[in-house]
Nucleic acid binder design. Structure first.
Length: 822
RNA sequence: GCCGGUGUGAUGGAAUUGGUAGACAUACCGGACUUAAAAUCCGGAGAGGGUAAACCUCGUGCCGGUUCGAGUCCGGCCACCGGUACCA
């Protein structure tokens, strides 16, 4: 054992030993319970950043802890390798995206190994490999067969200069990020998957997963199941009826206009004869398609001059075109009730449309002020509504729905905010959509012809899709007719690959099926760890895929991720680390300087996982100091030769300070086990070990029995820290005379006898304010405790001239005496 | 805009079920060791009052409420962060 702590010597040696023994290779083992611990795989952007280090350290700590608890742990790693950054890098460096990606993967893999994560590398995958994506293509053709995949028109951001489709993040203040051109909206044919077929199940099954409540709430709101009324307005003459959907039928008598989306047929028809309307619709199309932009845009609109007829009053209502109405939601038209909907209100104010209140709050409500804002609560009573007057929300909903249904013009329906998933991307670096365009229409590629391999030797220049220019890719033959056909040049959304990789890890060696029976040994994932930013999209898509896989009999479970742990971001100087802010910290420099264990220790100590983590260079140095201290403490102990003292500690035979240390030891074991196994709060686990270390460092052993206590403490410190700083702990464990790797050692258990206390310290409050502390026997009765509390000198001062009204005793904790002046 | 979260000393954080606010660290200050420095070790420390100790008052983003008791629960605000369907 080295005299000084030298991580640069210890860590590579320990890692080499792990490799030699293939200690992290996993196979099925029916004799032990399984535990599948998965971290969200990284996009290979170049090098690891602090967010990765944090995420993967959390996973590794839990995996190591569970292994020591006797579980058969699977912890795999791979690469989310398709995506836009590879194309951007290709344009910048004139490198093929594939080469850039594979180089990055090689570098990042070596960084992960240097950090000592216990991955089963034999299961590694990269989503850009044909061996992986062929099964995605296979699954998609099954979806086409089952009618789950279909084509429809969808709007995209179009850059007229670069002649390319832009992602939302590439549209900056309405302009293309590279060309600076005003972005337009275009309608193109796209592939969609019917995730809405599973909307109810996706919503209801949230009750059966052990996920943070906030994430479940976000998913519920995203799916947005609502009961509403779908009905149509009659229009003058023989104009076709206008279909609308509303969740507020109770406000139907307050409609003062109706609004349609700019792409609605009524709007397009009006534009034909009115150049002003045409110009307005044109200006609406110069806008990003992002929801945040649409929702915050100034509300604008135009009167079409057309009307609809109110189903109950028979009065005409104007039809407006409004930029806040979405063509994709409902029927692309809404009934506007400005008194009780904020968007309708703002629009009405802007264009001088009438505001007709039809709901009144019960009693006084200061928020009811229609000169300032709409009143949108569902807690009021209908007024000004003729036959529907005096009803609450429920009653008014039913009455209006019935009246509409009896007219035969509408019905109550369930609606979802969730939209079908558009999976087509007009980009190169993605999985080719396995479809050919033939003279007989679209045809899925047959299983035997899969995979459709993406050509990797291309030049990307930022305009148009390189795939469309590759005639050797595009031109093909329709196998059923022998006639020429063209391959689809769109690729999949990269969320497709990340929606099933967790299952492929569990079935990594299956060459002739997407998943084989091994998948069901490991699935579902017991713990899934990743950034909170994936709370909706990725996690919802993966849940959807899992249900599709289940319905194809590929998996037996209903949900992919039993438990979810979401981590916060890594910040520096209060904001997200980014190249543009110049506040990035490169983990590699820290590993080179302090070693992997220090980096792991700091990232776990600085904050609990779900909070954002504020980076601190001083904090890293402090973590390193602690490890040096541990190293010195264990080394000193080994040099005394006392570490070989064996035998069980006899609790009753201990002197007071030994007994205190022994109790602290077992309190610490209990605390750390709870923090690592249940709470996932590593910062407090580390703090507890630090407290134990501080107490141990002050301890002087005056007997053989005390030496035994101290030996047990030193060994426990090494064991308790080993999931977090495995290299140092392995080397110390060996120095303490053990030959087996810590990975194979059992986690220490709590000796309940050590926790027993004879006396307790209780806090005494008078009127809720802390006034004193008292010592009482652990088995003292309430009356005895109160007597001691009242007799306490400090407490008595505050009882003088007072009458005691009440006395509260919280066992093991405190006494509160409630008094008033006599 | 909408949905979800966060806010505690100089700093990161602790307080797990409504019961001692500030554990454990970092930075800082003082001391020991040293010719000196670094490293290491020991000690101090929320703010205000008090010569000091004892002790007292205030204090968990802001305003209000519930409770014997609120960082924790409820109502209303403010600031910041994440998501917002083509960033991953």
């Amino acid at each position: 054992m080295e005299r000084d702590y030298k991580p640069e010597v210890i860590e590579p040696a320990i890692q080499a030993a792990w490799d030699d023994q293939q200690i992290y290779k996993t196979t099925e083992d029916p004799s032990r319970p399984k535990f599948y611990c998965l971290c969200m795989f990284p996009y290979p952007s170049g090098k690891l950043h602090m967010g990765h280090v944090r995420n993967y350290t959390i996973g590794d700590v839990i995996s190591r802890y569970m292994t020591m608890q006797g579980y058969n742990v699977l912890q795999p790693m791979g690469w989310d390798a398709f995506g836009m950054p590879a194309e951007n890098a290709a344009i910048k460096h004139e490198l093929p995206p594939a080469q850039w990606t594979y180089d990055n993967i090689d570098h990042m893999r070596s960084q992960l190994k240097r950090l000592g994560f216990g991955y089963d590398w034999d299961r590694e995958l990269a989503t850009c490999q044909p061996d992986y994506y062929r099964w995605e293509q296979w699954l998609f053709t099954r979806m086409i067969e089952k009618g789950l995949a279909y084509r429809k028109k969808a709007r995209v951001n179009w850059d007229p200069v670069d002649q390319t489709v832009l992602a939302n993040e590439q549209v900056i203040e309405g302009r293309g990020w590279r060309s600076g051109a005003l972005v337009e909206q275009r309608e193109i044919d796209q592939w969609f998957i019917r995730i809405t077929d599973y909307a109810d199940e996706l919503l209801d099954d949230l009750e059966h997963v052990d996920w943070p409540e906030q994430v479940k709430t976000m998913q519920r709101n995203w799916i947005g199941r609502s009961q509403g009324l779908e009905f149509s307005f009659e229009r003058p003459g023989d104009a076709p009826r206008l279909e609308v959907y509303t969740t507020r039928p109770d406000t139907i008598m307050g409609i003062t206009y109706v609004a349609v989306a700019a792409q609605h047929p009524i709007a397009l028809e009006a534009a034909e004869s009115n150049p002003e309307i045409a110009a307005f619709i044109e200006s609406c199309s110069q806008m990003s398609v992002a929801e945040a932009d649409l929702a915050t845009a100034e509300k604008r609109g135009m009167d079409t001059g057309q009307t609809v007829i109110h189903p109950f009053t028979g009065k005409p209502l104007p039809i407006w075109i409004a930029n806040f109405v979405l063509m994709d939601y409902g029927s692309g038209a809404v009934m506007a009730v400005p008194a009780h909907d904020q968007r309708d209100y703002e629009f009405a104010k802007a264009y001088g449309l009438p505001i007709q209140p039809v709901i009144k709050p019960v009693g006084d409500d200061p928020s009811y002020d229609l000169s300032q804002a709409a009143w949108c609560e569902k807690t009021g009573i209908t007024v000004n509504s003729g036959e529907f007057d005096g009803l609450n929300f429920e009653q008014a909903f039913q009455a209006v729905a019935q009246a509409i249904e009896s007219q035969g013009i509408g019905r109550v329906t369930t609606n979802y905010r969730l939209r079908d998933w558009g999976v087509g991307r007009q980009r190169y670096w993605g999985c080719p959509i396995p479809v050919i365009h033939t003279d007989e229409g679209l045809k899925p590629v047959a299983d035997d012809d899969l995979p459709v391999v993406l050509p990797e030797d291309v030049v990307v220049d930022g305009s148009g899709s390189p795939l469309g220019q590759r005639m050797d890719f595009v031109e093909t033959i329709d196998p059923s007719t022998g006639r020429p056909a063209r391959r689809e040049t769109d690729t999949f959304d990269t969320f497709m690959e990340s929606s099933w990789y967790y299952a492929r890890f569990a079935s990594a060696y299956s060459n002739d099926a997407m998943l084989d029976t091994h998948a069901n040994y490991w699935l579902p994932v017991d713990l899934y760890i990743g950034g909170i930013e994936h709370a909706i999209l990725h996690l919802l898509y993966a849940r959807f895929f899992h249900k599709v896989l289940r319905d194809l009999d590929l998996v037996t479970s209903d949900e992919p991720f039993k438990k979810l742990l979401t981590q916060g971001m890594v910040l520096k100087d209060g904001s997200k680390m980014s190249k543009s802010k110049g506040n990035t910290v490169d983990p590699q420099e820290l590993i080179d300087r302090y070693g992997a264990d220090t980096v792991r220790l700091f990232t776990m100590f600085a904050a609990p996982p779900e909070l954002s983590l504020e980076w601190s260079d001083d904090g890293v140095a402090g973590a390193h100091r602690f490890l040096k201290r541990i190293h010195a403490l264990v080394q000193a102990h080994v040099q005394t030769g006392q570490h070989s003292l064996q035998g069980k500690v006899d609790v009753d035979g201990l002197d007071e300070s030994s007994r205190d240390l022994y109790r602290k030891l077992h309190e610490t074991i209990a605390k750390v086990s709870d923090d690592l196994g249940r709470r996932y709060h590593f910062n407090t686990a580390i703090a507890a070990v630090m407290e134990l270390t501080n107490q141990a460092a002050k301890f002087e052993a005056t007997s053989a029995e005390a030496q035994r206590v101290y030996s047990e403490v030193i060994e426990a410190i090494v064991l308790l820290l080993s999931p977090i700083t495995p290299h140092l702990c392995e080397s110390l464990w060996e120095a303490l005379g053990h030959s087996e790797s810590l990975v194979k050692v059992s986690w220490p258990t709590v000796n309940e006898a050590a926790l027993v206390r004879n006396a307790l310290t209780l806090v005494v409050q008078v009127n809720g304010k802390l006034r004193s502390r008292i010592e009482v026997a652990a088995d003292a009765s309430q009356d005895e405790i109160l007597a001691v509390a009242r007799a306490d000198e400090q407490v008595a001062k505050f009882l003088e001239g007072m009458i005691e009204k009440k006395a509260i005793v919280v066992p093991q904790k405190l006494v509160n005496l409630v008094v008033t002046p006599a």
